[in-house]
């Protein structure tokens, strides 16, 4: 930074971007702090709950659509007749202060958002051609972590783990190295959920059909119904619902619902 400053002829314009991008300026963490240090450092960092509008934009940016089942429905987060006020939003009239500390209702809205969005986008994304996928570009719905006899399928597991790392980066901004404990934890969630589903499917205790809301039967943006042969209604291997669990887990994460 010093060298750049000197090389630029002591031009402040050259150094300001470097300062702003420096780890010190964009402090994300600190060693264990004493009470006094914590007081002094209280304003440092930018962590805060996203507003309903910001969270809606983030859903759109990462998942390709806002939180609503059909394009002409009301946005669940930003419409005043849906969750806007419950989630701390304002109308700039009678409600002019945002709620910045989540309460029990907001926690439930966050969970419903995560579960519903995962339901709405998982089959939709798997129904895209691989290069067009936003969430699952590295796996197919047929990739099972274990075969019928319960033995691991290494190539499938590698692809599933790679897609988990991809999702951590896309949704949470986390770059995980292969074998990272967070990758392991998310894979474990996928694996255990898939095992439960697969066992249920084999015993006919669980339907191969996806719940109606989670099927991909209509193009979201045009609102046109898809031809029968282009729809994705079923999940015979249980993988789609296992991926739904993973996406729900990540969307409900502190890093997704908060600005850091």
């Amino acid at each position: 930074m010093t060298d750049t400053f000197v090389a630029s002829g002591h031009n402040l314009k050259a150094i300001i971007p470097l300062v702003v991008h420096s780890a010190y300026y964009r402090a994300r963490s600190a060693e264990t702090l004493t009470e006094d240090e914590a007081s002094v450092l209280a304003p440092l960092g930018t962590a805060r709950l996203l507003t309903p509008e910001e969270l809606s934009s983030k859903l759109h940016a990462t998942l390709g659509r806002p939180w609503k089942a059909r394009v002409n429905d009301r946005d669940q987060l930003t419409h005043s007749s849906e969750f806007l006020f419950f989630y701390g939003g304002i109308d700039s009239d009678q409600v002019t202060e945002r709620i910045t500390e989540p309460n029990g209702m907001m926690a439930n809205i966050g969970l419903r958002m995560a579960l519903d969005m995962a339901c709405l986008v998982t089959a939709e994304d798997f129904n895209r051609a691989l290069p067009d996928r936003l969430l699952f570009p590295l796996v197919e719905a047929s990739y099972r972590p274990e075969d019928d006899n319960g033995f691991a399928v290494p190539l499938a597991e590698d692809a599933i783990r790679a897609n988990i790392r991809y999702l951590h980066q896309r949704l949470l901004g986390e770059v995980l190295t292969p074998g990272h404990p967070e990758e392991d934890a998310t894979f474990e969630l996928f694996l255990q959920t898939w095992r439960e589903l697969f066992a249920g499917l084999r015993n006919d205790q669980i339907s191969t059909s996806l719940p109606g809301r989670c099927r991909h039967t209509r193009d979201f943006w045009s609102d046109d119904e898809l031809p029968d042969d282009e729809r994705l209604n079923n999940d015979p291997e249980g993988t789609l619902r296992a991926w739904q669990a993973v996406v729900s887990y990540l969307l409900a994460d502190w890093r997704f619902t908060h600005h850091q």
């Binding site: 994300r28 963490s29 060693e31 440092l44 926690a107």
Partner: peptide
Amino acid sequence: QRFALPKAQATQDALFAARVGK
């Protein structure tokens, strides 16, 4: 551990406290 600044800690604590009452 990863986000240990007081502001980050406070928002994490608030989120998990909210989940308790959901």
